[in-house]
Write a protein that binds this DNA or RNA. Structure first.
Lengths: 253, 253
DNA sequence: AACACTGGGTGTAATTGGTACACAATTGTA
DNA sequence: TACAATTGTGTACCAATTACACCCAGTGTT
């Protein structure tokens, strides 16, 4: 737990720099060894984990703020980052309020104010990110989607909503450019889709469909070294990929 | 334009009641005589129109705030209301700031603060709504989608984003329950879809597809009085409609 | 009363897209 | 060299979407 002095100091600084009542929380997805990962932070003071988050500077656009927060936690800039929902229950940060209620008057404790949080989700290359804790956390690390720790605040809701959004997104937008390495095999890409969706897909139909989108380049090389037939390598056709992002993969009506 | 005293009074009251830095703007869609309508307000002081909006009370959930704002402008409660995007550019309400800059110090003018606005869109029955202006507007009325007035602030962006979202939504969720009267004919419903999408649809395929969703009840009556064959009346099957809202109309993968 | 006109109800063939398979090819290992 | 495992490609089948044709009912005209 923080001391009275520490809390007051952090609080005074935050009040100077940041907009009151608005926060940002990021759900950062990565992909490694066939498993989906989320970036999480273990709180120093509390017994639980939270998502990377932060506040918006007084004259900073919110997208820039989200980018800055992510860059501070991972060292990566310019990632695929998308706002997906606003979480605005009046008591969403009740936990904090109660913990420090006796120590510092609520008005003087920036963090005890009511915060409406803008949820962003990000897709990043696992190896590009260097998880870096903030001043309130002792650990910042990737957690497996199948082995998630207890969440603080409403961060479980934020995470679940992000995952649902990602799954929905998957059906009408291309995903993968930000999660896969430059070159990859079709089975590797399929594994990503299966992990996000949480179910098996047919190998052959996946390949045909994926190629049908026209967002992949087949490279002449194959991935040698495996104990079996060497699969071809692919890369994303960035131009078509961007176009597909804009236009969507399915027309609907 | 407001007087110094009026502005200070409104401002002082707002500071008491509302959360600073957060606003809500609503894009309210209605449907009348085969035309899509949006609810808009003509500003008393400025030469332009805006979307209905407001602020969040200090201990009020944001969805409740959006509902309250809408209810105040239309008299309807419990409408289909959905947040779709957050608009957070630092100078989005620059217009206001400049206009009153000389009159009241910025710190004392609540409305000159930076506001991050949560965009909601609503679908309402045209006849249920009674457009009611707020204290800053002289007119509150439906405007035709094909004949929109000049927007103030970034409200054109908010409107456009809402329309895009609605069109996207249309391809995987049922729409109509909140926009159509209790009983309606298939051609009337089709007109709604065509208006939202901005293109013609095939009469026969539309009917089959719509019925295929299983969210309509065919009523025994027909709509008499037209100059031609009397079309059947339909109503929504609310139970199935709700289910379709949750599950989506298309599976995706 | 017969007729044309218009808009509404229903059916059907052609095309497309998705699903479920089978089989051949390649690689390292036994 | 045979084998196991995995990848590449093809094809038959079913479901959904699209495109189009035909008939029906109500109104106004001759």
């Amino acid at each position: 737990m923080l001391t009275k002095e520490e809390l007051e100091e952090y609080s005074a600084e935050a009040i100077e720099i940041y907009l009151d009542h608005i926060s940002i929380d990021c759900v950062v997805f990565g992909f490694h060894e066939g498993q989906m990962k989320v970036l999480m932070l273990k709180s120093k003071n509390e017994d639980g984990w939270q998502l990377p988050g932060g506040f918006v500077q007084k004259r900073e656009p919110i997208d820039v703020a989200a980018n800055r927060i992510l860059a501070t936690r991972t060292g990566i800039d310019e990632v695929f980052l998308q706002q997906f929902h606003v979480f605005g229950a009046p008591d969403r940060n009740r936990q904090h309020n109660e913990m420090y209620a006796d120590m510092v008057a609520k008005e003087k404790n920036f963090f005890a104010h009511r915060f409406i949080s803008i949820g962003y989700y990000a897709l990043v290359d696992f190896f590009d990110a260097i998880p870096t804790p903030d001043e309130f956390s002792e650990i910042c690390t990737w957690r497996d989607l199948n082995d998630l720790p207890p969440f603080l605040l409403d961060h479980e809701l934020i995470f679940t909503t992000a995952l649902d959004t990602l799954r929905l997104q998957l059906s009408y937008q291309p995903i993968g450019y930000n999660l896969m390495p430059k070159e990859f095999t079709m089975p590797e890409l399929q594994k990503l889709y299966e992990t996000i969706l949480g179910k098996k897909l047919d190998r052959r139909n996946f390949q045909r469909r994926m190629l049908g989108f026209g967002i992949l380049n087949k490279l002449p090389q194959t991935r040698k070294g495996g104990a079996h037939k060497a699969p071809y390598l692919y890369s994303f056709d960035l131009e078509n990929y961007q176009a597909a992002l804009k236009e969507g993969l399915k027309s609907g009506w």
